[in-house]
């Protein structure tokens, strides 16, 4: 029982990370048709800069963790907005070129991170509580898992409320369903493009800071490796669906944890198998509306 509890809560924590990356990917794809390969880099740059800030003011206080999360969100949001305005917008409606540009950005930025921070991981510390464990059903759960779950849940709730109750949220939801009709109602949908990039980048930035506590380090490749699972989560959840991304993130991460423990480290393979099964049975993903 204690093992199950540990795997389940760790899976939820990892799922929280997947969700923070996948939510932006899914919204960006849903609204704009852009597959954003640079999304992992938004995460990595945020994690690095947040770490730089936190270690300068002393990383072991809750205040510095809060500041790190804020820095992560702001950096991720700004970098993502800049990407949309400078690179993506020039290639409006040319989806393949847009993907290619984000691929170039991903390759170049990871290389740049390696140039600046080196290829070795930079170890991250936080408030002492995060490194301790809490007893749940006999399992000793690392406390950072709870932080991850709480923050991701808060982000999910905020995004859902934003989408539900604001005009921009309304424009985004409508745009995911039928973008050209939104413009035909006289709405400049490109402002929503910049906005989803900013929101997605901010979520990824928060994810970056949390990932550095989950893994215990920051490294230039961190974003890229999470990105691949986030892609899988996005496809399984259904492109453009925020709730689908949340559901699939938890699903994928929990399966991964259980398979890693009970099936001899086959978690990653099981996830890909799961993807294959979902595609065979339901090509649109769990909550996707369109193919």
């Amino acid at each position: 029982m204690s093992t199950v509890a540990l795997l389940l809560i760790t899976g939820l924590g990892l799922g929280a990370l997947y969700f923070l990356v996948a939510s932006g990917l899914s919204l960006i794809y849903g609204l704009m048709g852009v597959l954003n390969f640079a999304h992992g880099s938004f995460l990595t740059i945020s994690a690095f800069l947040a770490w730089e800030v936190a270690r300068r003011i002393g990383a072991d206080s809750w205040g510095s963790l809060g500041l790190a999360l804020l820095v992560g969100a702001v950096v991720g949001g700004i970098v993502a907005a800049g990407t949309e305005l400078l690179l993506i917008r020039r290639l409006y409606e040319r989806h393949i070129e847009q993907v290619l540009v984000t691929v170039g950005l991903a390759l170049a930025s990871v290389a740049l991170f390696q140039g600046i921070w080196g290829t070795d991981p930079q170890y991250v510390t936080g408030p002492a509580w995060l490194a301790q464990t809490t007893d749940v059903l006999g399992a000793r759960i690392p406390n950072n898992r709870f932080l991850l779950i709480a923050v991701a849940a808060a982000v999910l709730l905020t995004l859902l409320l934003f989408l539900r109750y604001t005009r921009f949220g309304l424009v985004i939801r409508a745009g995911v369903e039928n973008r050209s009709m939104v413009t035909a109602l006289g709405i400049d949908v490109r402002r929503a493009f910049t906005l989803v990039f900013t929101i997605g980048g901010a979520a990824a930035g928060i994810g970056g800071v949390l990932a550095s506590h989950y893994f215990g380090y920051v490294s230039p490749e961190m974003g890229a490796s999470l990105l691949i699972f986030a892609f899988i989560v996005t496809v399984i959840g259904g492109l453009g669906s925020l709730a689908g991304a949340a559901l699939a993130a938890v699903f994928v991460a929990v399966i991964q944890q259980f398979a890693n423990f009970y099936l001899g480290g086959t978690g990653d393979i099981m996830v890909v198998l799961l993807l294959a099964v979902v595609l065979l049975v339901r090509p649109r993903g769990l909550l996707g509306r369109r193919g």
């Binding site: 989806h95 691949i228 899988i232 496809v235 492109l239 990653d268 393979i269 890909v272 193919g291």
Partner: peptide, 24 residues
């Protein structure tokens, strides 16, 4: 399997399969 989807989804699925190979 991957040709069951098209466009960007196809890209992601092929990425996932290659990733599985890389992990193996």
């Amino acid at each position: 399997i991957s040709l069951r989807v098209s466009g960007i989804s196809f890209a992601m699925v092929t990425l996932a399969f290659a990733q599985a190979g890389s992990v193996l």
